[in-house]
Design a protein around this nucleic acid. Structure first.
Length: 326
DNA sequence: AAACCGGGGCG
DNA sequence: CGCCCAGGTTT
């Protein structure tokens, strides 16, 4: 659930646990199938890390989940927070946790006005979380702090009138709830124009697999790329397809343009229907690590980014033979 | 220390 | 539209 609200994860969690009910089944999981289960949730390295961690638990720890800090921290995707959550919630061991909710509660209760994005402040908060840890009921305590932050000590308007610990809260005493916690100012998010091609060959078109690391790692997409200054959309698409796949294409028509927002930038994705003209696919591994020629009816079997999902709706509206009731 | 990594909910 | 979310990894 890292950096993702609980309500967003709930339905994914149930499907995930049904698909992979134990650490052995996750360790043996097909990675593409796992990415399909994760599709739409974001931060796709989490899925890859869970998969790798399950494999290490099977191989290094004989299938038994570790219950000590060092072993937990040695697993991919498990940092200080997740290790503390596992120790305290799963094993009732005395470990502090510090998520976004706990940060808000602690900075307000103890009137900490330092910038919480600084490592220095984070260290102070971790020490504080350690100090306030009770000797018993750590599981309930840690969850209670997070729940207090999620339901009452909210970012915008905290409901201090119904807060069970308002009497010991320094921020409430000083009426400074709205000023705390202090964060670094955000940087402006740039906008990019991006092109993508639906490259047809007979009744099939081309999809490519993004490299495992980096943005949208391990997801399939319609090949293309970022428009350079002074470049037309068509020139960009032909250049990208040549650079990434060594293919020459013929651009037939504009299919759709969709907007999409990421955390650090925004894009407009311009999609064109194309014909494969010449060349034999030779992938640039920085852009694609696999490819498939598929029919429109197979699209739902692959995991795609949100922006490409919007494009797929346009493809299915235009090309897919719709069955079912009239 | 700072940048990177998604998508959704909410005011 | 801007902010934030049961953070971790890479640079």
């Amino acid at each position: 659930m890292q950096q993702t609200q609980v309500t967003t994860v709930e339905s994914y969690f149930h499907r995930f646990i049904r698909q992979y009910p134990n650490v052995q089944s996750l360790a043996e999981a097909d990675l593409h199938h796992l990415m399909k289960v994760w599709e739409g949730l974001g931060y796709y390295s989490r899925a890859r890390h869970l998969h790798a961690a399950a494999q290490e638990i099977v191989s290094r720890f004989h299938g038994v989940f570790p219950d000590n800090l060092d072993d937990l921290l040695s697993l991919p995707g498990i940092g200080r927070y997740t290790a503390g959550a596992i120790l305290s919630i799963a094993f009732e061991k005395p470990a502090p946790i510090l998520d976004g909710n706990a940060v808000r509660v602690l900075t307000r209760v103890f009137h900490i006005t330092d910038n919480i994005d600084k490592a220095f402040t984070q260290n102070i908060l971790w020490k504080l979380a350690e100090q306030i840890l009770p000797e018993k009921n750590v599981r309930s305590f840690n969850q209670a702090v997070m729940e207090l932050g999620a339901l009452i000590c909210k970012p915008g308007k905290p409901d201090c009138s119904i807060c069970p610990i308002s009497s010991i809260c320094r921020a409430n005493e000083l009426h400074l709830q709205a000023m705390i916690p202090l964060r670094s100012p955000r940087k402006p998010v740039p906008h990019y124009d991006v092109t993508a091609g639906i490259i047809w060959r007979a009744d099939r078109f081309l999809i490519t697999l993004r490299p495992p690391k980096g943005l949208l790692g391990g997801l399939w997409e319609f090949p293309g790329g970022k428009v350079k200054p002074g470049e037309t959309l068509e020139t960009c698409l032909k250049r990208e397809i040549l650079e990434e796949l060594n293919l020459r294409i013929h651009i037939k028509s504009h299919l759709v343009s969709v907007g999409h927002a990421y955390t650090h930038f925004k894009i407009t994705l311009h999609v064109f229907e194309c014909q494969c003209q010449a060349g034999r696919i030779r992938m640039n591994p920085d852009a694609a690590t696999d490819f498939q020629w598929i029919t429109a009816s197979l699209l739902d079997q692959y995991a795609f980014p949100g922006a490409d999902r919007k494009v797929i709706v346009a493809i299915q509206r235009k090309h897919l033979i719709r069955g079912g009731p009239e």
